[in-house]
């Protein structure tokens, strides 16, 4: 099975976010980054499928030079090669633009499965894989919990609402978006890190992908980004741990009348 996994680099979960001067996004100064959470589970799912069925895992990331660390991390965990999409025209794209670039790279490479995480922790569009499937003319499934290979295709377990699940079969090649927590992530071993140094990372720019810039024109725009307006007036309790504990219990008892 030839599997391409899309990995996005996002600001670390506990980053302090400062809004930029134009008020349209955050400042990227001083940020540290990590691999988007659900993408890590997509990578792990790909590595496990390869261990079971043979084949190849290719780690793909779009972004500036810093996203090479994401690809290297994937190679150290066991991916076979990397593809890095980097071009100034690919910065700040919306989900359609990003999917257009990813679809072009994936098409040129060829694959049985294209995996993404189910949504990013920064923009949270939850669309990249689905749009790529449409652009590639392929079937897809989202919020995938389990993947089985079948004759000529795959059978996947999807999470639905209210505690329901559903198995869905479809022919390969296909595109899947993977839910967080479905497997146990492996960490890179020292051996893996050493081996990764010899693995290939192919770099592609917009011209190399054969993209015409018209296909990247934005379909949505950010007017402004801001700290959300609170819906409730929170009483913040202050003091030493013992003091706040006493205050809280007192308030729960006498003000909120919880006990």
């Amino acid at each position: 099975m030839k599997i391409i996994v899309c990995l996005k680099q996002v600001p670390k979960n506990d980053s302090i976010l400062r809004i930029n001067e134009q008020g349209t996004w955050i400042q990227d100064r001083d940020l540290t980054y990590e691999i988007n959470e659900s993408d890590q589970y997509a990578l792990e799912a790909a590595l496990q499928l390869k261990e079971k069925h043979g084949g190849e895992v290719i780690a793909l990331s779009l972004g500036p030079a810093r996203v090479q660390t994401v690809i290297k991390e994937a190679l150290a965990r066991g991916a076979d090669r990397g593809i890095h999409l980097e071009d100034a025209t690919l910065d700040n794209l919306d989900a359609f633009g990003i999917s257009t670039a990813i679809a072009a790279a994936a098409k040129a490479e060829g694959f049985d499965l294209l995996l993404t995480g189910l949504q990013s922790d920064d923009y949270g569009y939850a669309q990249t894989g689905v749009i790529a499937a449409e652009l590639l003319g392929l079937p897809h499934a989202t919020i995938v919990m389990d993947v089985q290979a079948t004759d000529g295709g795959i059978r996947v377990k999807r999470e639905l609402e209210n505690g329901f699940f559903q198995w869905v079969s479809m022919p390969a090649p296909a595109v899947l978006t993977i839910q967080s927590g479905i497997n146990t992530l492996r960490y890179a071993t020292l051996k893996g890190i050493m081996a990764a140094k010899k693995k290939e990372i192919k770099k592609l720019d917009a011209a190399g992908l054969g993209l015409d810039t018209a296909s990247l024109t934005p379909k949505m725009q950010f007017r402004r980004v801001y700290v959300p307006v609170k819906s409730k007036q929170t009483q913040f309790l202050e003091g030493s741990p013992a003091e706040v504990a006493a205050k809280l219990i007192e308030k729960l008892k006498n003000e909120a009348r919880v006990f």
Partner: peptide
């Protein structure tokens, strides 16, 4: 509603920030 057109508000960074967005095209 801004200039007679709807502007939509969505969460980013898992609810840590909010963003106002509009369709283009």
């Amino acid at each position: 509603i801004e200039d007679g057109q709807p502007v939509f508000t969505r969460q980013v960074f898992q609810g840590k920030l909010a963003a106002d967005v509009v369709p283009v095209g």
